[in-house]
């Protein structure tokens, strides 16, 4: 008969073994915080943001899609920092390149492809994800089913490109083969000392689903060229001050 702490240790060891068999290697120490997401990265297996897989971002309206765009651009700045290029395949084609620079991305290294049909976006995305030289591929679609996402996931497993799917105005939320499902919502910003004007963009980052990890909920700000976690007590404190 094993005791409770023994059992806990056993289970955690088994989980680690399973992760290893599934291909998740524990990173060598000192290489954490790969994408600068801070506490969010702790939700993933081994505490590493999974690159070379598909990520799915769900958004219900253009405002959320814009927040998702900001969030992805923040990640892109890290993914593209050693000179890579990326593809942004859009249904709307309304991304304003100049603003990407604010998020640390060189807009001239992003190639925009404007299409009108989900089918075309998925075809282009699959072709692009097979191209190992790219840093990331972002695709905006309305609907994607499991089979389509599986195809994309298989493509990235070969090339190790990171793919992002932005699901705008999606009607049904079926399961997909993506490593993570995110929901990014804009939040009211805070200005220093309640000065007038807009503060740094602030988002509620929900990790709805994550393979082998812990879903969670965080608040992040984009300030001075990086993600900055906003802890909730501070907000409460500030609210009290304002009130």
């Amino acid at each position: 008969m094993t005791t409770a702490p023994d059992r806990k240790e056993l289970i955690s060891r088994l989980q680690k073994d399973i992760l290893q068999w599934e291909g998740y290697k524990a990173p060598p120490s000192g290489t954490r915080e790969l994408v600068g997401l801070g506490p969010v990265e702790g939700a993933f297996p081994n505490g590493v943001f999974p690159l070379g897989t598909m990520h799915e971002l769900v958004c219900g309206n253009t405002e959320q899609a814009t927040a998702c765009g900001g969030f992805i651009s923040g990640l892109l700045s890290v993914l593209m920092q050693n000179g890579g290029a990326s593809l942004w395949i859009g249904l709307s084609g309304n991304v304003f390149p100049q603003t990407l620079k604010v998020f640390g991305v060189d807009p001239d290294r992003v190639i925009f492809i404007n299409l009108s049909k989900d089918k075309d976006v998925l075809w282009v995305m699959e072709e692009a994800l097979k191209c190992a030289g790219l840093a990331a591929v972002i695709g905006e679609v309305q609907e994607i089913d499991f089979k389509q996402s599986r195809r994309l996931q298989l493509a990235v497993e070969q090339s190790r490109v990171t793919g992002f799917i932005l699901r705008n105005w999606s009607k049904k939320m079926g399961s997909t083969a993506c490593a993570a499902r995110w929901k990014i919502k804009p939040l009211p910003s805070e200005t220093l000392d309640s000065l007038p004007g807009l503060g740094f963009p602030r988002w509620q980052i929900e990790l709805l689903r994550v393979r082998n990890g812990q879903p969670g909920n965080w608040i992040m700000e984009w300030s001075q060229g990086r993600f900055k976690p906003v802890s909730k007590p501070v907000i409460k404190h500030q609210e009290l001050m304002v009130g």
Partner: peptide, 17 residues
Amino acid sequence: PATHWRTDRLRPLRMLH
């Protein structure tokens, strides 16, 4: 690029056509 990308002005991430 012949010039720098400007970041000193607030610009939208998505701009309507």
